[in-house]
């Protein structure tokens, strides 16, 4: 397992998660997350090399629906939820970069 969590790691993770941390919060979360990850090192007490991962406890496969159109939501209801709507669309401030 990797080295201890650094302040830079936390800053990077916050950026990825679209959260802004103050300097104090950065310190606090570095310590707290570090403790949790430290505890997680107990998983290394077992040799898990040959164990397959399980992402989900649900064993059913091939769950599909038929290709049938069902009613959509009323546009006015949907746009009424929006913080800002213009011209029947969701309005956002300018986008700085292209989508990946």
């Amino acid at each position: 397992m990797s080295d201890a969590l650094s302040r830079d790691d936390v800053a990077k993770v916050a950026r990825l998660a679209r959260l802004v941390l103050s300097e104090d919060e950065l310190d606090l979360y570095t310590e707290q997350l570090g403790q949790i990850l430290e505890h997680a090192r107990d998983m290394n007490s077992l040799d898990l090399t040959d164990v397959l991962p399980t992402a989900h406890p649900f064993g059913v496969t091939n769950v599909v629906r038929e290709d049938v159109v069902t009613p959509s939501l009323d546009r006015e209801v949907v746009l009424a939820m929006a913080p800002h709507a213009v011209d029947h669309r969701f309005a956002v401030p300018r986008i700085l970069g292209e989508a990946p």
């Binding site: 397992m1 990797s2 990825l16 990850l37 997680a40 998983m43 898990l48 399980t54 992402a55």
Partner: peptide
């Protein structure tokens, strides 16, 4: 943040991947 870290490049196997094996 914990979850973002556990899934991020370079840490996935050590944390999330390992947790799935414990599962």
């Amino acid at each position: 943040m914990l979850g973002t870290y556990a899934l991020s490049a370079g840490y996935y196997d050590a944390y999330y991947g390992q947790a799935l094996k414990v599962r």
